[in-house]
Design a protein around this nucleic acid. Structure first.
Lengths: 345, 345
DNA sequence: GTGAAAGCGCTAACAA
DNA sequence: TTGTTAGCGCTTTCAC
């Protein structure tokens, strides 16, 4: 099938491509009659403009990039959903890049994005990302970036996050109120904003309740599944083992549940559990899991909305924006045998 | 920051853009010395070629589109992972389009893709898709398409699926072997290849075991969460209620579990359950869920690999390809109190 | 081994 | 209101 271009239409209608182009973009300088003729033929021929030709000329791509660590995580899946919803409504296209938690990949993506391939970027940094020159580099190319969830203070731009500190505090307080005295915190990587803030909240709640805990109650889990499991097992084998656990990321939940079962520990009687998770199956776990649920979909929408504001108004100052959307504590049996609650944090 | 182009490098080196272009593409007609000078300056200036200019000229975009119903589903999340892995290794970019089960959106996406925006498409059709003209249209523009998971016989192209019929059969047989006599099947949409084939397997297994069941043991669930829940409740309130349930898609699992609990029905004693699902939490559900697990990641990789074969060899015949990667039946407590098994179907 | 010139399909400035 | 011209940044003959 031969491709139809502006020229095809122009020749057939004895017009110039410029006129056809303007007609299709509904320019006021074209007569109603010509517009009509052009539109009719265009749709009859099934004309679809070549976006790259337009992009080359106009220097805008109508495309954004989403750079995230992974998709197989309820948070990111929901966030993409939110992003895609907004992008679709704006007629934008969405490129997906997965870093798989590797800075090297992140850097490669960012370097490529200097090419003009996209008009803006939504980013959630990899766990390895400490230096942020690659991000600043892209900003110097005037590509607006909005960082969501896993933010980074070094990067001067808009952020969309949730109240991680308060959530960590609320989760811990909740466990304390349910008679936990020895609460462990499973960290993902202390470098990551989200885990760090959640941990600060956890520590503050402990301090506010005069609970002093040994150092090994904060367990770092970020060096592979095997190691994570080993670390969790070690924690639960401590003579002075915890009676409460806070899992700072969703994927640790299964390990905690499995390990408890392996050691014959009952949840919540022996160990109460709260996870930062967006699992749709939380209510049907054994036992139902108390979760801190992030507003993933909303965060995706908010981040995309901010990005489009920056794209639409060039004098919009992204640096001034730091949105926070609250998480929700869903109390279920894993931390509490009695009431089912939904607490806005 | 001003953008560096081929021209920038050419002027600085007193060369023509043609030479620079060839040097960067490592053409044999350029001297080693010139290549070296060009490469050095290019990397010093942080030159990144404009993909759209190249695309316009060469008529290839190094980009593929993934058109799927949703992301917030373990199968599609894992599949994207597989797709992205292959795409990254080929230096390709991935555009994501979510149909949210709407043909209208699917059609709009396919119409846009006629523009030359992508070199190929990976597709899993929406539940509403019956007519497939929009897909054939795109094929007429010589864009190779590989359909995965939710295939469609009307479309003449390569497919990657799993052995849905056998999986449906195996799941049913498994329940029968575990003493279920009245097995219900929760369909998603009978039009969809996957649910239809799973159902055929289910029916054949029933027939092979001389189990005759009333029509209302096949329940259609595809008209919204509310309705799905109502339908499942109705099923479990039947006087002659099922003692086994097969959920043909992941998202129905929660509804089944919740409804059973609501009615005080014990899984598996009162009702055994098997779900087609890729839930990472299957082992820690209450009770652990017996699943038919699709090889999502592998299917994504296989589909992408096929697409790239078609992209690389223009005489590669996609129509001849119909790959099937087997699912696995993970037997857990929801269908069986005793042994834990992993059965290759 | 290098360069000049044309052109991919579109848009924008300027004439007519 | 319409058309001419130039050019976005790159690749590709083809000449030198």
């Amino acid at each position: 099938m031969e491709n139809v271009s502006l020229k095809t239409i122009a020749t057939r209608l004895q017009l110039s491509t410029a006129t056809v182009s303007k007609a299709l973009r509904d320019s006021h300088e074209i007569s109603a009659e010509t517009k009509e003729r052009v539109r009719t033929l265009a749709s009859a021929l099934n004309y679809v403009p070549n976006p790259y030709a337009s992009s080359l000329r106009r220097k805008i791509s109508k495309t954004i990039a989403v750079v995230i660590p992974e998709v197989a995580d309820s948070f990111f899946a929901d966030a993409i959903n939110g992003i895609e919803t907004i992008a679709q409504s704006k007629g934008y296209h969405v490129l997906i890049y997965l870093t798989h938690e590797s800075v090297e990949k992140e850097k490669r993506f960012f370097s490529d994005l200097q090419s003009g391939r996209v008009d803006g970027v939504l980013l959630s940094i990899s766990v390895e990302t400490v230096a942020t020159e690659h991000i600043a580099d892209l900003q110097r190319h005037s590509i607006p970036i909005v960082i969501f969830d896993r933010v980074c203070d070094d990067i001067k731009t808009a952020t969309v996050s949730t109240n991680d500190y308060e959530a960590g505090y609320a989760a811990t307080k909740h466990l304390i109120e349910n008679n936990c005295k020895k609460i462990a915190y499973l960290s993902f990587s202390a470098r990551l904003s989200i885990t760090a803030k959640r941990m600060q909240g956890y520590k503050q709640a402990l301090a506010d309740n005069n609970l002093l805990l040994p150092d090994d109650f904060v367990v770092s889990c970020s060096s592979g599944e095997e190691n994570d499991i080993a670390a969790i097992e070690q924690l639960l084998l401590l003579e002075n083992r915890p009676d409460g656990i806070i899992a700072s990321v969703e994927k640790l939940t299964t390990h905690v549940y499995v390990t408890c079962q392996k050691f014959g520990l009952k949840i919540p009687q022996d160990v109460a559990v709260v996870s930062f998770a967006n699992l749709k199956t939380a209510p049907i776990l054994n036992p139902p899991l108390t979760t801190v649920t992030q507003p993933a979909f909303e965060m995706g929408k908010a981040a995309a909305t901010l990005l489009f504001k920056a794209l639409e108004k060039k004098n919009f100052n992204l640096n001034a924006e730091a949105l926070s959307i609250p998480s929700v504590l869903h109390v279920r049996d894993s931390s509490n045998k009695t009431a089912l609650q939904k607490i806005q944090i």
